[in-house]
Computed example of a mutant assay.
Amino acid sequence: MTTLKILLDENIPTTVLWWLITEGHDVLMVRDVGLSGRSDEALNAYLHRERRVLITLDLDFSDPIKLPVGNGRIVLHPDVTDGELIRRMLRHFFARGLPRPGELYVVQPDGIARYDNPALP
């Protein structure tokens, strides 16, 4: 598995943070970088600047037109808030060799949808 630079949104349980760290990823939480309560645009600008992949439950980030994807985003189905289920979903996602840079994924308990980034050639 490739090591990822990840930013976890405020809505992701801290149990997921610790699991991702033990898996070898470079993980920060939104609150750790002073972005709690800031706009989606400010968060997206940080992601671009720091080349991090966002993991969030916020469906606003599933619109690549409103918020350019940049380094990549993983949007989890918003009804999923259980840390163990999120870990299982991400484990399955990573086992498939995902994410790929610049792509947007919506991950649900029953599957993964990939959306092309219209900003890429």
Rank of each mutant, 00 (worst) to 15 (best):
16 V>Y: 10
110 D>G: 11
18 W>E: 08
99 P>W: 12
7 L>Y: 14
25 H>N: 15
39 S>P: 03
74 I>P: 15
75 V>E: 01
87 R>N: 07
81 T>D: 12
109 P>D: 01
100 R>M: 04
101 P>N: 01
17 L>F: 09
22 T>I: 02
3 T>W: 05
65 I>L: 10
94 F>Y: 15
110 D>W: 15
71 N>K: 03
92 H>F: 15
23 E>D: 05
2 T>F: 15
62 S>V: 11
103 E>H: 14
34 G>C: 07
114 R>E: 00
109 P>G: 01
10 E>Q: 02
46 Y>W: 15
52 R>P: 12
12 I>G: 04
86 I>R: 06
45 A>R: 14
98 L>Q: 06
42 A>T: 00
44 N>C: 09
114 R>H: 02
116 D>V: 04
11 N>T: 02
29 M>Y: 03
98 L>K: 13
74 I>D: 07
89 M>E: 00
45 A>S: 12
38 R>F: 06
34 G>W: 09
44 N>Q: 06
106 V>T: 07
91 R>F: 12
90 L>M: 15
56 T>W: 13
71 N>F: 12
92 H>N: 15
43 L>I: 10
15 T>K: 15
52 R>Y: 13
103 E>K: 14
47 L>M: 12
11 N>E: 03
51 R>C: 03
29 M>H: 07
103 E>R: 14
49 R>A: 11
110 D>I: 04
120 L>A: 01
51 R>W: 05
67 L>Y: 14
113 A>N: 03
115 Y>I: 01
14 T>N: 13
38 R>T: 00
96 R>S: 14
15 T>W: 13
23 E>P: 07
33 V>S: 04
108 Q>I: 02
119 A>F: 09
98 L>N: 03
52 R>S: 05
37 G>Y: 02
12 I>L: 12
74 I>H: 10
89 M>A: 00
76 L>Q: 02
3 T>E: 10
74 I>F: 11
70 G>E: 00
81 T>S: 15
112 I>Q: 05
39 S>G: 01
25 H>I: 13
99 P>L: 12
98 L>C: 06
27 V>G: 09
121 P>A: 00
67 L>W: 13
57 L>N: 11
38 R>H: 03
33 V>A: 03
119 A>Q: 02
25 H>W: 07
